[in-house]
Every structure is written in structure tokens, then in C-alpha cells.
């Protein structure tokens, strides 16, 4: 995928050129997410995490108040309590950082947009049909994911596809079209195949292998690979030992032209993406003099 086929895009009020890639650091406002197990459940810890990832160069944070996996029911009021004031505080202290909120609920989305969120990261593929209207009303970006039609916060069970990438393309493009029809700026729409969501490991591997087909649609592609089960199952590694596999998968997606990387490890992923982006001829080396003096 050459630079000519990659387009500029917008994440809320923040614009990115055709050569840009974005590190989207995960910040959980949850007591029970799989990777950090509540490490940033306390607001002060979550804020420290934001400060750290911004220092590490993350252009974007993804704030989530509900873990993706099944678990205790979290009410709208509780989700808002976890994220709205926090978003406001991050907005105030980090005006240049893109703030994404990981929610599928329009009511929560409306509240976070009112206090400065830039992106609605809907991991559940449009489960709440009014989410696109909220994105349009606030002129923010929306991430259109593929979940294979599974219900919110459920694990995939015996799902099969004739062609998983065709299904991903069908659903994400339909969602993107729906967002644009609702009034979302086309430059502010991002698509995400959603590795592991409604997919077994073989599906996620195939999506990774064929990611170029998503990039070829012209929509900026977000990938969320970090420490996921498809990496763990592929390498037989538990959570906590999946960084190498994550970065290998990241390299494949970067070569294909993915633009936004939802990550736990900012520094390692940034270096991986920069290295691959440069190999692909989309970024110059930092400073090359060897053999050129």
C-alpha cells in the first residue's frame, strides 16, 4: 500500500496527514479488564497512566469504563460515573491528545462528547443505533467495528464464516455508510476488523493476513491486537507474555497500511510501526549517515 492510497483523516478536532500513524493507548476505568486487572481503576492511577502514555508519545488515549468480556452488568449511570468526569479532566490537562471513549451506548457517548471526547470507539459494531447520531451531532469520529453480529459483551461461540474478511468488509462498510448517512464527516470515520470479537483465532489470523483488503477500501483502519487471545493461542503464551506476538502481528498490519494502533505498550508499538512504515517507504529514517558520509 503506497502513500498515494493512504488518505488524510480526522479524529475529532485532530487532523492527520496521509503518512501519519497513531498510537491509541488503552486506559481502563475498570476493575477487571483482562490485561491490567484493575491497575488503573483508581482515578489517580488512570490519570497517571494518561500522563505516562502521553510522555511516551501516544497521540491518543482510549478510555473505557466497561471491560469487553462478560461480567457484572454495568448500568449507564455507573459507566458515566466511571468515564465522564475523567474525560473532562484529561481534556483539560492534555488539550492536544485525541480522546477516544470505548463505549457502545449513545447516552454515555453524548455525555463524553459534551466534555471533549474526540472519538467514539464502538467495539460492538453499532449495537446502539443512535450512536452514529451522537457522533454526527458532536462532529466527532466513530470507529466502525465488526463483531459478527454477536451481542454486547459475549464471547464468540462456534461462529463460522464463509469468508471472514468478506464479512468484516460487509459489516464495517455498512456501518461506515450508516455513519456518513447520519451526518458524520466521511474523513472522521475509521474501520476496525475487531480481532477476537466474534472471531476465533483462525479468523483473527486471517483478518491479519488479509488486512490490506480493508486498507484498500480507503477508510483509515484501526487495529486492536494488543495482548489478545489470538496472539496467546497462536504462541501458547499467557497474558503478560504476548508482547512479541503482538508486535509481530502489528508489523503485518503496519505493512498493509493500518493507521491507528490500540495498544497497551506505546513505546514498543511505536518503534515497530515506525520501522515497518519506513521499510514500506512511507517514512524516512530518523537519521541515516552510514555509507553516506
Amino acid at each position: 500500500m503506497t502513500l498515494e492510497t493512504l488518505r488524510p483523516f480526522r479524529l475529532g478536532r485532530h487532523r492527520f496527514g496521509e503518512d501519519a500513524t497513531v498510537m491509541m493507548a488503552i486506559v481502563n476505568r475498570t476493575p477487571d479488564s483482562f490485561y491490567d486487572k484493575g491497575a488503573t481503576w483508581a482515578e489517580s492511577a488512570a490519570f497517571d497512566r494518561v500522563r505516562l502514555v502521553v510522555e511516551q508519545g501516544a497521540e491518543m488515549v482510549d478510555i473505557g469504563g466497561i471491560k469487553a468480556a462478560p461480567g457484572a452488568e454495568i448500568s449507564v449511570a455507573e459507566e458515566k460515573a466511571r468515564v465522564v468526569d475523567f474525560v473532562a479532566r484529561v481534556r483539560e490537562e492534555h488539550p492536544h491528545v485525541v480522546i477516544s471513549v470505548d463505549t457502545w451506548r449513545a447516552e454515555v457517548a453524548d455525555a463524553v462528547c459534551a466534555v471533549g471526547a474526540d472519538v467514539l470507539n464502538d467495539a460492538w459494531g453499532g449495537a446502539d443505533p443512535e450512536l452514529v447520531d451522537v457522533a454526527a451531532a458532536h462532529d466527532v469520529s466513530i470507529v466502525c467495528t465488526h463483531t459478527g453480529g454477536v451481542r454486547v459483551r459475549t464471547r464468540p461461540h462456534r461462529i463460522e464464516y464463509d469468508d471472514v474478511v468478506a464479512a468484516v468488509l460487509h459489516d464495517t462498510l455498512a456501518y461506515a455508510d450508516r455513519a456518513v448517512a447520519a451526518g458524520v464527516d466521511p474523513e472522521a470515520v475509521v474501520i476496525d476488523p475487531a480481532h477476537d470479537f466474534g472471531k476465533n483465532t483462525f479468523h483473527s489470523l486471517e483478518v491479519t493476513r488479509r488486512l490490506g483488503e480493508l486498507v484498500a477500501t480507503g477508510w483509515p483502519v484501526l487495529v486492536s491486537l494488543s495482548n489478545k487471545d489470538f496472539v496467546g493461542e497462536t504462541l501458547d503464551q499467557p497474558v503478560g507474555s504476548r508482547l512479541v506476538g503482538t508486535l509481530a502481528a502489528t508489523s503485518v498490519c503496519a505493512l498493509a497500511g493500518a493507521r491507528v494502533y490500540r495498544v497497551h505498550e506505546v513505546v514498543e508499538t511505536r518503534q515497530t510501526v515506525d520501522m515497518v512504515w519506513t521499510i514500506a517507504g512511507r517514512r524516512p529514517p530518523a537519521r541515516a549517515i552510514r555509507g553516506l558520509a
Partner: peptide, 16 residues
């Protein structure tokens, strides 16, 4: 005649 001066060998940070 330093090749690093050529635009085809441009870096993000100019070494020279």
C-alpha cells in the same frame, strides 16, 4: 560530494 545531501537519502533529522 556527500551522498547524505541528496534528497533521496533524506532523514527526519538531517545528519549534516
Amino acid at each position: 560530494p556527500v551522498p547524505a545531501l541528496l534528497s533521496r537519502y533524506a532523514s527526519l533529522t538531517d545528519p549534516v
